[in-house]
Design a protein around this nucleic acid. Sequence first.
DNA 1: TAATACGTTTAATACGAATTAAACGAAAAA
DNA 2: TTTTTCGTTTAATTCGTATTAAACGTATTA
Lengths: 183, 183
Amino acid sequence: MDHNEALEQSRARVIEAISQNMDLYGVTPSIGRLYCLLFFADKPLTLDEMKEQLGMSKASMSLGVRTLLDLNMVEKAWRKGVRKDLYVVNDDPYQRFFDYFSTKWRGAATMNTNAIETTIHELQVLTENPETPEEVRERAQVDIKNLENWLEYYDWLNRLIDSFESKEILEFIPIHKNKEQEE
Amino acid sequence: MDHNEALEQSRARVIEAISQNMDLYGVTPSIGRLYCLLFFADKPLTLDEMKEQLGMSKASMSLGVRTLLDLNMVEKAWRKGVRKDLYVVNDDPYQRFFDYFSTKWRGAATMNTNAIETTIHELQVLTENPETPEEVRERAQVDIKNLENWLEYYDWLNRLIDSFESKEILEFIPIHKNKEQEE
DNA sequence: TAATACGTTTAATACGAATTAAACGAAAAA
DNA sequence: TTTTTCGTTTAATTCGTATTAAACGTATTA
């Protein structure tokens, strides 16, 4: 085995691990490998180069790059004299983590909060309606109580995400270079 | 429309919203609806009751309940005289959030960390090998630097998850009842 | 025991998302 | 202009997973 192969083989291990676990970010292993390809590339890549290296279609590369752009995991790059679109990885793992929550989790929290608020309002109208049977009224009141508990949680979640976006979380959980760690 | 329907319809909105957004927890909308069914149930349910209410097969309920159990989103319940297995929702949203990170994200962090550490070690051996061509050595050194940056991130992530598990995060982002909020 | 009532597993199916080939439109080059 | 080179979109296909029917094993009951 020559040394170039050894390098590629070493890389392959982390590529596989990371690609598989990228489902936490809601992307497929294929897109995970695309991300890793860009991560290990020493220069911005074109769609054709990605297609070449991964042995997939150009359409897939186009789609894959776009979802990675949506997640702020890659960025467009520019190089004089190059007409093709170029892409580089956004290799700050903290930023990647924070961005993911800013987009996906924040979006879900907003949607759920809206649905819950609307529903609570409807249920309140229901309980205030004198024609509502007692049995239904009671169930509605239990629902309201439970849903208000969720609202409180989503408020908390939003504040957590705020601390990610503003990076204030790093005051509580600091990034400390682990210098004096085990050799 | 009778009042019972009104209640069901109000519930349906939040059920749909939450079920759709449950993909953040890595589960399908079907399992999301199963979770919501248990959430709104006023008593522990059997597999047959779930099957009945959702119009799905018993096998699906069995599978679905198990994945929810793995995520600590539901628990087994007991009732005297009832032979069938009973399940209730674990309706603490904070705990749900924390458990998810304890299992899924911690697991991914561990796997990736292991892969990265092994790879860094291999790359170091490669760079120390006098037969390694200079060009490969340089690329390996760049890789090592980048991967060490990731290791630092996963260490940070683990400490963040620690603060979830221990609930110390609540000292930084407190749960405050939003009493004095906009009416 | 035997018979029934469970829950789970397995193998087959059905459904949806990932992937691609081909068509398309836009921009640069000639 | 016309032609070529891009990237994207669309429609078709492929692939994987969700779902189910049926078989299975186990525990309870009689």
